[in-house]
């Protein structure tokens, strides 16, 4: 048998392709450091000096840290609550799928995946504001609840692969159903929890539509929403705008650089299921 050699043609093609991915990011970085007069010439050249003035100004103008705090607050709690509650619900359903009620519940959650958000958008906006939920806490509740339909689906597949014998042994030792879940099942779910956490985190951090329609108080705006709100104030100051965009993208890029392998394998695990 021949051990294959490195395929250089494909390597080169993939490198060229990756330039297409990196180009907008390169452009965003260089423009964020330029000054308006530098925009007149060739857009591809590097900025003359690497000054952080645009960033400073953007931070002040958009109240960046406030938006960051909002995004972080939402994302953090959505991830925590989603992992804790959704796995629990999935467990309850997975262990009772032979019963009609739970089977119906499973398909109920599943079918909701096919309901596009715009359909519930108009009434939901009214309902949440009437109940005083047009704020960050309201957003968190909605994300956690909406996440159920997808997460129950992927958790259940995983839970069903865990042998019931493990639980029975724990019950013999006197553990309650509650205890069995937290002591036996939940730790076993760790890889799946990581997957759900990553996908949930990205979803909550980057979402634009729900904050757009739900939040009216600007001091609650999330990072993407802030970029939208300040569109008209950036006007044609692209340097300022790009500095602001870059800062909004940066937290996720940083996390990605350090946890890239973990994130990719996490998402992959979710998809193999």
């Amino acid at each position: 048998m021949t051990r294959k050699k490195t395929n250089w043609i494909i390597t080169v093609l993939l490198i060229l392709g990756s330039l297409f991915i990196l180009f907008p990011i390169y452009l965003a970085i260089t423009i964020a450091f330029k000054t308006p007069p530098e925009m007149a010439g060739n857009l591809l050249v590097l900025p003359k000096s690497w000054s952080f003035d645009n960033f400073k100004q953007a931070i002040e103008m958009t109240n960046f840290f406030n938006a960051f705090k909002n995004s972080f607050f939402i994302t953090f709690f959505v991830v925590i609550f989603t992992v804790l509650t959704n796995s629990l619900v999935a467990y309850a359903i997975a262990r009772n799928l032979h019963k009609k009620f739970y089977k119906t519940l499973y398909f109920y959650f599943l079918s909701a995946m096919f309901i596009p958000f715009p359909i519930i958008m108009l009434p939901l906006v009214k309902q949440t504001s009437a109940w005083g939920m047009d704020n960050l806490v309201g957003l968190i509740v909605l994300y956690v609840v909406f996440n159920l339909s997808f997460n129950v689906f992927i958790y259940i597949g995983y839970i069903r692969s865990i042998p019931v014998e493990l639980e029975e042994a724990a019950i013999m030792d006197g553990a309650s159903t509650w205890g069995v879940f937290w002591k036996v099942i939940f730790p076993l779910l760790a890889p799946m929890n990581a997957t759900v956490a990553i996908i949930t985190c990205l979803g909550a951090w980057n979402d634009f539509m729900l904050p757009l329609v739900l939040l009216s108080d600007q001091s609650m705006a999330t990072l993407p929403l802030v970029q939208y709100i300040f569109q008209s104030q950036f006007s044609t100051d692209y340097n300022l705008a790009f500095a602001s965009y870059l800062m909004a993208l940066a937290p996720m890029i940083l996390v990605y650089v350090f946890a890239q392998k973990w994130i990719i394998s996490g998402v992959m695990r979710g998809s193999i299921k």
């Binding site: 993939l14 490198i15 392709g17 990756s18 991915i21 990196l22 907008p24 990011i25 452009l27 965003a28 990205l202 951090w205 980057n206 634009f208 990072l223 993407p224 970029q227 939208y228 569109q231 705008a241 790009f242 965009y245 909004a248 993208l249 996720m252 890029i253 996390v255 990605y256 890239q260 392998k261 994130i263 990719i264 998402v267």
Partner: peptide
Amino acid sequence: LRAIYFLPYILSILIIGFIF
């Protein structure tokens, strides 16, 4: 290369839209 090709998935579509 795999990391680069996966990068867009983690970015906000809205902001990418502004850049484009």
